[in-house]
Amino acid sequence: MNTAFTLIKRNSKLFFKDKGMFFTSLITPAILLVLYVTFLGNLYRDGFTSNLPDSVTLSEDIIEGLVAGQLISSLLAVSCVTVAFCSNFLMVQDKANGTIRDLRISPVKPAALSLSYYVATLLSTLIICFSATGICLAYVAIVGWYMSLKDIFFLFLDVLLLVLFGTALSSIINFFLSTQEQISAVGTIISAGYGFICGAYMPISSFGEGLQKIVLFLPGTYGTSLIRNHTMQGALAEMQNQGIPAEVIEKLKDSLDCNLYFFGSQVNIGTMYMILGITILVLIGLYILLNKLKENI
């Protein structure tokens, strides 16, 4: 156990000392927030107003609260996974520069080595993503705050689960990588594509019917919906308090992916947590199995 702890410290220190990996991971959420506010803010704002009947009007504060909630939910849903991949590239770099060979011929158990990469990635990603969550909450407080303490608690829980998911997924994919070129290719694909398939960039409700059904088989979709529910619940509740009809609010929640429907049946919050939790356990189990099989070869 002491060996694993030493390796975790080593991997964490190397990540934070590597200015390329660290600053890329750290500034990505901040850059995304600026880009989202600049380019997606008006798009989201128009989307809210267009989905409301002509007879319904919302105050500017509520609209800004809804926009802020959607913006930060999109950012955090993507960052929790993409940052995990950046943090986990140390495992591939050790293969590329030959460090892994030195570690394997030392008296280090393969299980301790695999565990160290996973835990170091998890800790590094949590530090960055929790920091990003704090920045996002500060932004919401400036433009339109409607979140309760309960919403904030569940938001941090959602971020934790998505980081666990991203760490497990990146560990499995990076297990098969061994060169810098492969790191660049996978990093580009994940950064460019994950936001679309998890419904962060564009609501799933705007996809075609066939693509909607495919995306609903992906666990990241439910992670995005969980974050969206907890960042927007306060603003939606305030709409109800101001007398906005319940059917209008439900239609808005459908368009925002707060409500997800799997082949016509609505997926409740508890089921979303269950799907994400089971997926994390399966991916961790698969990572352990891959390392066990490699030991036996």
Rank of each mutant, 00 (worst) to 15 (best):
R45F: 15
A111Q: 04
S255E: 14
F262Y: 15
G277M: 09
S170D: 04
S148K: 04
L286G: 13
I72S: 02
A30H: 01
L157C: 14
L169H: 09
M1R: 03
G166P: 13
T3Q: 13
N259T: 07
M239D: 13
A111D: 07
C129A: 15
I105V: 06
G220E: 10
G193H: 01
F165E: 05
L177I: 13
F176T: 12
L40T: 07
L218M: 14
H230S: 10
A200R: 00
S73H: 01
G210K: 02
K292H: 14
T188P: 02
L26W: 06
T38F: 04
R228G: 04
N42D: 11
N88E: 14
G134D: 14
S55P: 01
T133D: 15
G270S: 02
G220M: 10
L290P: 01
N88T: 15
C80S: 13
L7E: 00
T57I: 06
K19Q: 05
K213M: 09
P245T: 06
R10K: 10
I183G: 08
V248M: 06
L115R: 04
F85H: 04
D94L: 13
A192K: 08
N268S: 04
F176P: 07
S255P: 11
V78S: 00
D54P: 08
E247G: 14
L160K: 00
F175Q: 02
V78G: 00
K251M: 12
F130G: 08
N97G: 06
N174K: 00
G193C: 10
T133M: 14
M21D: 03
A132R: 01
Y117C: 07
S106R: 06
L75I: 15
P107F: 06
V186M: 14
I204K: 01
G195T: 07
S225D: 11
L58D: 11
G20S: 10
S73M: 02
N42P: 02
S59R: 09
T121N: 05
I269L: 03
F175I: 05
A138W: 07
L236C: 07
L58S: 11
F175H: 05
T167Y: 08
F153G: 15
K253S: 14
P29H: 05
S114G: 12
F175N: 03
P53H: 09
A237K: 02
L122W: 05
S87P: 02
E295D: 13
F85S: 00
V92Q: 12
F175T: 01
